[in-house]
Design a binder for these strands. Structure first.
Lengths: 156, 156
DNA sequence: GGAACCAAGTTGGTAAATGCAACTATCAGG
DNA sequence: CCTGATAGTTGCATTTACCAACTTGGTTCC
């Protein structure tokens, strides 16, 4: 049986099948497959903290505080969407804002102790469903996989 | 300074490998970022065919026709959501429905020639975006990255 | 200094995607 | 026949997103 991609690939392109070509196709397919299920998996894992909200808190933590514009750029979201997500997180007491002393247009966003605790809970609940899938990977493979994903995403 | 992940990890877990923990968290965050960008990029590249709709047509193609219930199970979506997506695709002329002769409750869904062509176009445009992004990667890294993604997704 | 312009964030309006619940139609067992 | 399960549709509410207009603060250039 022919590979799936051939069903909708023109004849001329079929001659170009190098291993690089096939790997690229595979990356696209696998990344797309991930995207398909990301939403529902996230909803299962931490209903009280949406995937986007969790990731925003995570980035703030990682960077030791960041601005709304940073979140918008990183996740490719409109600044208005970020503004509302941040507002919701603040209302929940999960983050605190502070006007950037260096630039009064912006705010520095940081998770609050409550937010860190909520992240910790979400993190624990993810373990079973997400981390267990990587349980049989060795440390070097996990590190390399993470490095590839970072490299891929850093191209933005 | 302690690693970031320790801020919301309990004391007992700190005995585990911190580099492994950090890599796992990085994978989560990068995959999340990817999922967000995939939607936005797909919407840019082919407004007529959302990522979910494209993937549904793709699954129908791969399976040589499938039912709405299959789509719901595969993508972890509610059947009402599938029903509306399928309705929209039919209205666009991208798929045809046929009552299952074996079970008159269900329908067999197949992409139409128009749908296949739309998929081919969307596929090519998205593939081009991937090619640009990975242009400066060498073949070995691309192959390894693809292998990791396949391994990760194969757990489904 | 001031004008013109750019950047960060907020808010109003709107559209799309989704889940839940209620409903119809169909099937399978007893 | 009933009963219960399954496939699909539709009404309703919610979430999430984008765009555009606006406010405020910074930057450049004269």
């Amino acid at each position: 049986m022919q590979p799936i991609w051939m069903y909708y690939t023109t004849v001329n392109e079929k001659s170009q099948s190098s291993s690089r070509e096939e790997s690229l196709r595979s990356i696209q397919r696998e990344l797309t497959a991930f995207a398909r299920r990301a939403r529902s998996r996230a909803a299962e894992l931490h209903p009280e903290l949406s995937l986007v909200a969790f990731s925003m808190l995570d980035l703030m933590t990682e960077r030791g505080g960041c601005r709304g514009a940073d979140l918008a750029a990183y996740f490719m979201l409109d600044k208005s969407t970020v503004s509302r997500q941040v507002g919701a997180l603040e209302k929940l007491g999960y983050l605190v804002r502070e006007t950037d002393p260096e630039d009064h247009r912006g705010q520095i966003l940081r998770p609050s102790p409550t937010g860190l605790e909520a992240m910790r809970v979400a993190y624990e609940r993810r373990r079973a469903a997400f981390f267990d899938r990587l349980a049989d990977w060795d440390d070097a493979d996990i590190a390399q996989f993470a490095a590839y994903l970072e490299r891929y995403n850093s191209a933005f």
